[in-house]
Computed example of a mutant assay.
Amino acid sequence: MVRAPLSLRQFILKVHGRCNLACDYCYVYTMADQRWRTRPRAMSRVVVDSAARRIADHVRAHGIPSVELVLHGGEPLLAGPEMISYCVGAVRGAVGDDAVVQVSLQTNGTLLDRPFLALLHDLGVRVSLSLDGGREAHDRHRRGHDGRGTYDRIAARLEELEGDEFRAVFAGFLCTVDIRNDPIDVYESLVGFRPPAVDFLLPHGNWLEPPPGRDRGAVETPYAEWLIAIFDRWYGAPVRETGVRVFDEMINVALGGRSGVEGVGLSPARMIVVETDGSIEDSDMLASTFEGAAATGLHVHRDPFDAALRLPAVAERQLGAAGLPSECRGCPVRRVCGGGLPVHRYDRDGFDHPSVYCKDLFALVGHVRTRLVTDLTRLRRSS
């Protein structure tokens, strides 16, 4: 029996296709897929209107109670306040009372001034900022086109964001892991800004272009060791300082729950991307693999989002354990690690391979499970 595809719940609009930074690890601009060069710099209102209608049609066709709209880029704030407001209003207006539209925005933070914060607050948009730790750690990769670091500019913006007036806007940090940085220094630098959550991201790489420290045949687990140091610091804190998404999700799945993010657990992926030109595409992270990897041939002017659900590549991300690489299906930690992100499995002949981070994921999941089992055993004995 063939299972019907699940409806989409997250719609990522690339409202601006350029960035005012030149981060050296950016998968959009520095990796295999360079199609961004030929796309419009910014999304037009005509494309926004078509995307909004398609989202509304999808909501009504599937009876969806709530969807997430993510404003993304490039750097979405380059689109300007009027365009940000227009995008939010267009989608919410098209969907109407049929569903709740939760809106978030991912930004490098350099343009997040007080007027932008006030606008986002009034629109009910939550903001995630990219911050890689303290000044030295952050500025190693996240520099402007002039080569200068950006930490000081972002830290100044955070003084507004972490204050009581705009606290409701603050969703948390995205931090890309660099194993050269001290993990505890990075964690404590981030926690110092009182973020609601931190999302530690493994740098994108695959078997053809491995990430730093993850060459073919390497048996070391530097990324696991880095994250384990933070896990022990975070998990052992006397009070909860922040959420850490990868740890929260692993714990939830290990205890029998379902993951809410791709890359942990076996929950189906239910997101789609609309590029600045209106193209409907699979995950933009696929830009790290090969030219056109995310292309579907669909467009919001002519195609419903249901058409994407019928594509093999999109449907495969909803298959759970059946969609794992063949080598992963007998692994004892597969239900928790979920095989990692699909983009990290790529090799010359496709994606049917374990993650380039397989050894790290195995070690990290094992450590988290051991801590949980130890604590649960202690609790049962003391009750």
Rank of each mutant, 00 (worst) to 15 (best):
Glu209Ser: 15
Ile228Glu: 10
Glu188Ser: 09
Val100Glu: 15
Glu136Leu: 13
Pro81Lys: 14
Leu105Asp: 01
Asp49Leu: 03
Ser50Trp: 08
His367Gly: 03
Leu319Thr: 06
Gln102Gly: 14
Ala79Ile: 00
Arg381Asn: 13
Ala313Met: 12
Pro81Ala: 15
Met31Arg: 14
Leu319Met: 14
Ser128Cys: 12
Ala308Thr: 01
Val100Met: 13
Asp282Gly: 13
Tyr187Arg: 05
Ala94Gln: 04
Arg378Cys: 09
Leu311Tyr: 01
Pro354Asn: 01
Arg126Tyr: 05
Pro222Gln: 06
Pro342Ile: 04
Glu165Asn: 08
Glu188Leu: 11
Ala61Trp: 09
Gly124Lys: 08
Ala308Trp: 00
Asp306His: 08
Arg302Thr: 15
Leu161Met: 05
Val314Gln: 12
Pro222Tyr: 05
Glu162Val: 12
Arg53Ile: 02
Gly243His: 06
Glu281Ile: 03
Asp113Gln: 09
Val365His: 05
Gln10Pro: 02
Val127Met: 03
Ala224His: 04
Ala313Ile: 10
Ala137Cys: 12
Leu286Thr: 03
Val67Leu: 09
Asp349Ala: 14
Pro203His: 10
Thr370Phe: 13
Arg369Ala: 12
Val253Phe: 02
Arg18Ala: 09
Val333Asn: 12
Arg142Val: 02
Gly96Pro: 06
Ala321Gln: 11
Phe200Asp: 01
Asp132Ser: 10
Arg157Tyr: 02
Ala118Ser: 14
Arg381Cys: 09
Glu249Asp: 09
Val95Arg: 00
Met250Asp: 04
Gly217Asp: 12
Ile64Glu: 05
Val125Glu: 04
Arg143Lys: 15
Val28Thr: 08
Ala155Arg: 08
Arg92Ile: 05
Arg245Ala: 06
His138Met: 03
Arg92His: 10
Arg240Ser: 14
Leu78Met: 13
Phe11Ser: 00
Val273Met: 11
Gly236Asp: 10
Ala293Pro: 00
Leu78Ala: 06
Val300Cys: 06
Leu13Ile: 05
Glu68Gln: 15
Pro5Ser: 08
Phe290Val: 09
Val336Met: 02
Leu69Phe: 08
Arg37Trp: 11
Leu364Gly: 02
Thr30Leu: 12
Phe166Tyr: 15
Asp232Glu: 15
Gly330His: 05
Val186Tyr: 03
His141Val: 08
Pro212Asn: 10
Arg270Ile: 01
Leu77Ile: 08
Val264Asp: 00
Ala22Leu: 11
Gly89Gln: 13
Cys175Phe: 03
Val261Leu: 08
Pro312Glu: 03
Gly338Asp: 02
Arg348Ala: 15
Arg39Gly: 05
Gly292Ile: 03
Asp199Met: 10
Ile184Cys: 13
Gly320His: 02
Ala79Asn: 04
Ala168Ser: 15
Thr221Arg: 11
Thr276Arg: 04
Ser189Glu: 04
Pro332Gln: 10
Leu227Ser: 09
Pro210Ile: 11
Thr370Met: 14
Leu190His: 07
Arg135Met: 12
Leu21Asn: 06
Thr176Ser: 06
Pro76Lys: 03
Leu361Arg: 02
Ile272Pro: 00
Gly217Tyr: 10
Ser189Ile: 03
Phe170His: 00
Thr242Leu: 09
His121Glu: 14
Arg167Asp: 07
Tyr151Gly: 00
Val95Asp: 01
Leu123His: 04
Ala79Gln: 03
Ser288His: 08
Gln106Lys: 09
Gly74Lys: 00
Leu266Trp: 05
Gly297Phe: 07
Gln10Leu: 14
Leu255Lys: 12
Gly74Glu: 00
Phe362Asp: 05
Pro342His: 15
